[in-house]
Deep mutational scan, measured.
Amino acid sequence: RLRTTITPEQLEILYQKYLLDSNPTRKMLDHIAHEVGLKKRVVQVWFQNTRARERK
């Protein structure tokens, strides 16, 4: 499986959303995924990875 490439514009939106809520609901994940044009699962994993990186 190929990795999904996230553009700088998408990253900017994801980080803005992360600052508002680091643990979004399913509904919010759907909305964010639609807004940035990525699959919900990709957005979900991005949030998981970002939370894990923050803990280190």
Rank of each mutant, 00 (worst) to 15 (best):
L2S: 15
V43T: 03
K39E: 15
A33G: 05
D21G: 06
A52F: 04
W46A: 04
P8N: 10
P8W: 13
L38N: 00
L2F: 12
T25M: 07
P8A: 15
D30K: 07
Q16N: 07
D21A: 03
K27S: 11
V43F: 01
H31T: 14
K39Y: 09
A52L: 06
E54K: 02
V36I: 13
T5H: 02
H31I: 11
V43S: 01
Q16V: 15
L2D: 15
R51Q: 14
T4F: 05
A52I: 03
S22Q: 12
I6W: 07
I32L: 09
L19T: 09
R26A: 15
L2G: 13
G37Y: 00
Q16Y: 04
W46L: 02
L29I: 13
H31A: 13
R53N: 13
E9A: 09
A33H: 02
P24M: 02
F47I: 00
P8E: 07
E9P: 06
H31N: 14
R3K: 14
K40D: 11
T4V: 09
Q48R: 08
K17T: 03
W46K: 01
V43Q: 00
E12G: 07
Y18C: 02
P8H: 10
N23W: 08
W46Y: 06
T4P: 13
Q44N: 11
I6Q: 02
Q48H: 09
V45I: 13
L38K: 02
I13W: 08
A52Y: 07
K39A: 14
K40R: 10
T50G: 03
W46M: 00
Q10F: 00
R26P: 15
A33D: 01
E54Y: 04
R26K: 13
S22L: 03
E9T: 07
Y18F: 14
D30G: 10
R55G: 14
T25W: 00
Q10C: 04
P24E: 02
L11P: 04
L14C: 01
R41H: 12
N49S: 10
L38F: 01
I32H: 03
T50F: 06
V45S: 05
R55A: 14
K39F: 00
T50V: 08
V36Q: 00
R26Q: 15
V43L: 04
R51K: 13
V36P: 00
R1V: 14
K40G: 12
